[in-house]
């Protein structure tokens, strides 16, 4: 199961890299609301990347690194997590 998840996330990562630049709009110069369409795609894609990264941080964090990483939203909370108080220090 973990193996499947690992490969799944790897594919997701590759897709995120591949379409950060909209190759299918190559040569296109359509302007929408004052910016090139390809720039809008990029902005949307980066927002999507943030959401995917957030989902990974919740569900898949540890995969491929911690030998007994638990996927599927089963996040363990240890002393490291609870120690996180405030952002100043």
């Amino acid at each position: 199961m973990q193996r499947l998840e690992r490969w799944g996330w790897l594919v997701v990562a590759l897709v995120l890299c591949t379409f950060a630049i909209p190759w299918f709009l190559w040569g296109d110069s359509t302007v929408v609301a004052g910016l090139p369409l390809w720039l809008w795609w990029h902005v949307g894609w980066m927002a999507l990347a943030s959401v995917v990264f957030w989902a990974f941080a919740r569900r898949g964090w540890g995969i491929g690194i911690e030998p007994d990483a638990v996927g599927s939203g089963n996040e363990r909370r240890g002393p490291e997590d609870t120690r996180d108080t405030g952002d100043g220090r």
Binding site: V43, M46, A47, E80, R83, D84
Partner: peptide, 23 residues
């Protein structure tokens, strides 16, 4: 980094922060 949570949060915020500055 102070904790695992810190790494997770910064990781998810990273693409947004980049696009906010570069555009």
């Amino acid at each position: 980094a102070g904790s695992k949570t810190v790494l997770k949060r910064s990781f998810a915020l990273w693409p947004i922060l980049c696009v906010l500055l570069f555009v």
